[in-house]
Every structure is written in structure tokens, then in C-alpha cells.
Amino acid sequence: MFPLNGPMQDQHTPAADMNPSLEDLLVAVGRERNRQAFGVLFGHFAPRLKTYLRRLGCDSGAAEELVQEVMLLVWRRAETYDPIHASAGTWVFTIARNKRIDVLRREQRPEIDPDDPALVPEPEEAADRRIEAKESSGRLRAALKDLPPEQAELLRMAYFEDKPHSVISAEHGIPLGTVKSRLRLAMERLRRSLKDVG
């Protein structure tokens, strides 16, 4: 898919004639240990991860160190990436979230194990309704842009401030009921966008 041994291109933009998606690049890193693809992924994600970590309170130096740790995990785990389950952005987000909980809070992140035989399985028909992650991520981003500003702002706080909604309510002086209803309304709209098949 990519010239394996070709000269390194500008790492911040994919070559125009190929224009592979971030998902393609991640798969190439997983399958071929493709450094050029990794460089492009770094160019896209590293500056956004830095902003993410700065919003969580890291200074510039600490944020850059942590960005490198996250990208190293992206390199190591790329083989386990499956574009059907998550867009590249979603997959990187979960790695960054777990890493910052580990490093900044020194806590573990309890998660289910999707291969655990003790998991209660989902009903068959629900599994059939799932839409491929890559397809829905464009619609999701469009729906985020259309959210009323007060809902979008609260959603960003929920993801980027390391505070549960009850604390956001107390610190920002927004009644708890208002916080909950705004988040629920935002979820309703975004869910609809995930289900809309073009």
C-alpha cells in the first residue's frame, strides 16, 4: 500500500496521490511496521494530543513527554487495531486517556476484557445493527459541530477536564439537573447521527 523503502516524504501531509485515511495508515503500521505511515500519524495526532494534555493541566514539556509515550503505545499496539471497531481517532483517544490516568493520577483504568468468556453476551440482532466505525465518524464530527454551544461546551469539559459531571456542576455553578439534561440532549443528537445511514 505504501512504498516501504522509499524516501521519507514530508511527515506532516500524506502524499497527495495516495491520500490514505488515518485508519489505513494505522493498519499499515500494524501490518508492516511502516515508519512513513507512523510519521504521518504522528504529524496528525501528536499536536492534538499535546492540546489534550495541556487542557488536563500538563505544562508544555510534560505534555510533549507524555505525547511521545502515547505515540509509542500506538506503535506497539497498532497490530491490535481493528478499523471495524473504532476510527483511528477513537482508538488513539482511548490509549491517551488510559495513559494519562496512569501517569497523571497514578491510578489504574478498570476495563472489561472483550474476550472474557464471563461477559454477558449481547443479543444477536443488536450486533447486526452496528455500523462500521470509519463510516460513522464523519457524521459524528458533523453532528458535533451542529450541537448548541452550551451542550458542546459541557461535553468538552466532561472529556477534557478530568472532572465528573457532578464536580463540573459545582465548580461552574451550573445546577446538576441542567448539566445532566444538556449532556443527555447532546448524547441523543450524537446517537442519531451515528445511526443515520446515508
Partner: peptide, 20 residues
């Protein structure tokens, strides 16, 4: 899973801050 997809979309929409 849907909420993590929202996290991914929010991350993609963040203003990039150049690295050293």
C-alpha cells in the same frame, strides 16, 4: 463505545499545538 467515538471526534477537533 459510542461515547469513546465522541472522545475521538473531540480529540480530532482540538486545535493542534505544535511540538518542539
Amino acid at each position: 463505545t459510542e461515547m469513546e467515538a465522541i472522545g475521538g471526534a473531540l480529540l480530532d477537533d482540538l486545535e493542534p499545538e505544535p511540538l518542539s
